[in-house]
Amino acid sequence: MGLDLISRTLKTSAIVLLIFLPFGLYYWGVFPTLAVLSGAVWGFINLIFLSQLVRTVIRPDKIDVRRAVGLGLIKFPLLYGSGYFLLKIDRFDPIHLLIGFSLFLAVMVLKMLGRVILGLDNDNKTNKNLQGAL
């Protein structure tokens, strides 16, 4: 389990979202699909900034304070401010935003479950070949 897990989670979530979009447009309509898309983008941006912030702040060597403060100042207003404005849009149902926002969490849980079930984090030589799969 390395830091590439986050980028792979984002890639998989983006693929799931791309697969969902035509079905959402056909069965739900434009605005619910747009709400799911907005929620997912909101979640992706949040995860990207969160991982950058954790990598900058929580480390054994010297912390780059300017970068940490900059990331914090961008991330928190971005997360809660954009969330507030998304929720204020009348045509967007909060449930659809929630579905979009939860997409990367679901992907992450399934990826972690896959790793646990396949035992990829055990230091076993036979498992090394499967490392790239999940």
């Binding site: 389990m1 954790v54 929580i58 997360l79 909060p94 929630l98 969490l105 992450m108």
Partner: peptide, 20 residues
């Protein structure tokens, strides 16, 4: 760091759910 990012993402999601 990875465990921390995952944990923090889930904890933050809880706050977002509360906000929604």
């Amino acid at each position: 760091q990875v465990a921390m990012i995952i944990g923090a993402a889930f904890i933050e999601a809880l706050t977002i759910y509360a906000l929604i």
